[in-house]
Nucleic acid binder design. Structure first.
Lengths: 126, 126
DNA sequence: TGCGGATATGCAGGCGGGTCGATGCTGTTG
DNA sequence: CAACAGCATCGACCCGCCTGCATATCCGCA
């Protein structure tokens, strides 16, 4: 599903926060849920954490299988899901595939979930 | 799983952000994933949105089944999951059960996903 | 060109989750 | 007290997902 890859971009512009003023429609709900599904897994959260705390902010598959305790195909599978969700970017150098976090992506999700009361405190509008 | 209910509280204090410095351990990853799983569903996102935008910031089940297009048992099921995750609170008045959003809960999730860089550089302007 | 290592993909088993219909429970109303 | 409305729970079905094993693909190197 590549639609997930572009999901964040489409939601970024307006505040389609599920906690803003207007109720979100089905399409936006599915898009946001798709990205959140990519995040809602212990292995993938640990992958993001491991990559972020890696020396150069990047890591290859061979560095991730051991700390995760999962097989190499399974790790590749999770990395694929995170990449398709737009949370990771992949760069192949030689035989290795290096993964790096896309900062704006997770920041966008955080913004979508940080809606109302950070600004004013009233949802009065509308 | 009631551990999900307390998951946020346990993670709130330190910044166990998966994108902070140290890699998170399995336990924290599972807790955070549990809460994110509660969010990662279109129906539940729409429920949160509907409740938030309701007149008094609260809504009963009978007001939610129609806009969602789901059966009443299914809506109750989703509300239960959100409540156990600590995202909603339930108050029974008469025959009705009113649900309200717990603001701090979602704010906590957003903070966990808002890594370091949000502090210094802000592109917003709003 | 051929070999070996690093990843990705296919396939299958097992489990968890979303949905609905039926039912039970509780509080309201006549 | 009887009848009814709002919700929660139960049981069941079905689909999607996580995982590992086996295999294919790609790349560097001798």
């Amino acid at each position: 599903m590549d639609f997930v890859g572009t999901a964040l971009a489409e939601m970024t512009m307006p505040q389609i926060s599920p906690l803003a003023g207007e109720p979100i429609d089905r399409a936006d709900a599915e898009r946001l849920a798709g990205v959140l599904k990519a995040l809602a897994d212990p292995a993938r959260l640990r992958l993001l954490s491991l990559i972020q705390s890696a020396p150069e902010g990047e890591a290859c598959v061979c560095d991730l299988t051991a700390p995760l305790g999962l097989s190499q195909p399974t790790v590749s599978h999770h990395l694929r899901i995170l990449t398709e969700a737009g949370l990771l970017e992949r760069e192949k150098r030689g035989v290795w595939a290096f993964y790096r976090i896309v900062p704006a992506a997770i920041g966008t999700i955080a913004d979508l979930l940080t809606p109302p009361r950070k600004r004013a405190s009233k949802k009065s509008a509308r």
